[in-house]
Simulated assay, not measured.
Amino acid sequence: MTSVLSKSASLALVASVALPGIALAVPPGGYGDLVEEVAPAVVFIEVTAAQPTGGQLPPNMPEALRRQFGDRLPEARPQQGLGSGFIISQDGEIVTNHHVVAGAQTVSVTLTDGRTYDAEVIGSDPATDIAVLKITSDAKLPFVTFGSSEEMRVGDEVVAVGNPFGLSSTVTSGIISAKSRNINAGPYDEFIQTDAAINRGNSGGPLFNNEGEVIGVNSAIISPGGGSVGIGFAVPSDLVVDVVEDLGDDGRVTRGWLGVQIRPMSEEVAEVLGYDNPRGAVVEAVTEDSPAARAGLKTGDIILTYAGKEVQELRDLTRAVALTEPDDSAQIVLLRKGREETLDVTIGTLPDQDA
């Protein structure tokens, strides 16, 4: 049976009103106290987007035929989408998934107490599948805080809250099954894997630790039949915090840019070099007038370390460069014709965020 990777179609919003300094201990009887604290900030997201329901005319169609057949195409009709999200501030800042609000014309957010608000998309980042919304309320809103995903261990208990299949405020529990999963969803994959039941509609919802802190944003599942089989993935909170902060500034994420095309080291090359396993990133091409070109990188170089950290696989370099502030300097250790060399590079700004 072939597994199909699908993104959950909903988002869940969670909030915490726990008193400062008081940890939410999970009693042997279950998660009731924790859920009571965070549930008020769980929100239901409804999205309206206009999408064409029929085909489109070929761009090279003669003008005479275009005039004849153009008015026969079906008109664009409003398409509805559902999701989840969670409030992270009293003034109504909300985190959800990019794929939940992508292309949205209107976004509506409903709290568990029935209050409904129109939401504005402050910013959205396709590369990490994170988006930030904003609602305005005269009353203070419940909210949750982020915890450290780095401190979580495989086997630790977690709780997911969301709106699977439109069933609001659904709570599931499980453990962290793995960390740093690469599911080929984007260039910065480092997902938390969990067996807590996550279905379509949980997208954008929070994954909590036992203290009621958000340690992940539920984003994807592997599902042969469309339902939960105990393999769900969440964007780790340590990454989400950085993206949310960046989106809050100007609605965009600014990433560092090196200017190289890279590929993995082959088994044969690793054997020749005396490595037990392939490592590093092999430079296939260097972009003209890029930071890499100015630093002296060449085709065939093997980047072994970046800013003092080893490059074991391609995503190690991709993430490290992206997280480097533009105009900051970094040291690269590379292998060139069998000899190690060290170069200093001044990182640029990634020109195309959608790339």
Rank of each mutant, 00 (worst) to 15 (best):
V282G: 07
Y306F: 09
R263K: 00
R279Y: 12
G300H: 00
P264Y: 00
V283W: 05
T299W: 00
Q312I: 07
A307Q: 12
R263D: 08
Q312A: 13
D289W: 09
R263A: 04
E313A: 06
V282R: 07
G300K: 01
E268W: 08
Q261N: 06
I302E: 09
S266K: 02
P278R: 02
E310D: 14
E288V: 15
A292V: 09
E267G: 13
E288I: 15
A270N: 01
T305C: 03
E313P: 00
E267W: 11
S290T: 01
E271Q: 15
S290R: 03
D316W: 06
G280N: 11
R279G: 14
G274Y: 02
E268Q: 14
V283Y: 03
V272W: 08
T305I: 03
Q261V: 00
L273N: 13
E271K: 11
S290M: 04
T287E: 09
N277Y: 10
G296P: 04
E310N: 14
R294I: 10
G308W: 00
E271F: 11
D289T: 14
Y306Q: 00
V272H: 10
P264K: 00
A285S: 12
A285Q: 08
L304P: 01
Y306K: 07
G300Y: 07
V260E: 05
V286R: 04
A270F: 06
R294F: 14
S266R: 11
G296T: 12
G280S: 13
A307H: 03
A285L: 04
L297V: 10
T299Q: 06
E268L: 13
I303Y: 02
V260D: 12
Y275E: 10
T299C: 07
V282I: 09
A285M: 10
A292N: 09
T287C: 00
V283N: 05
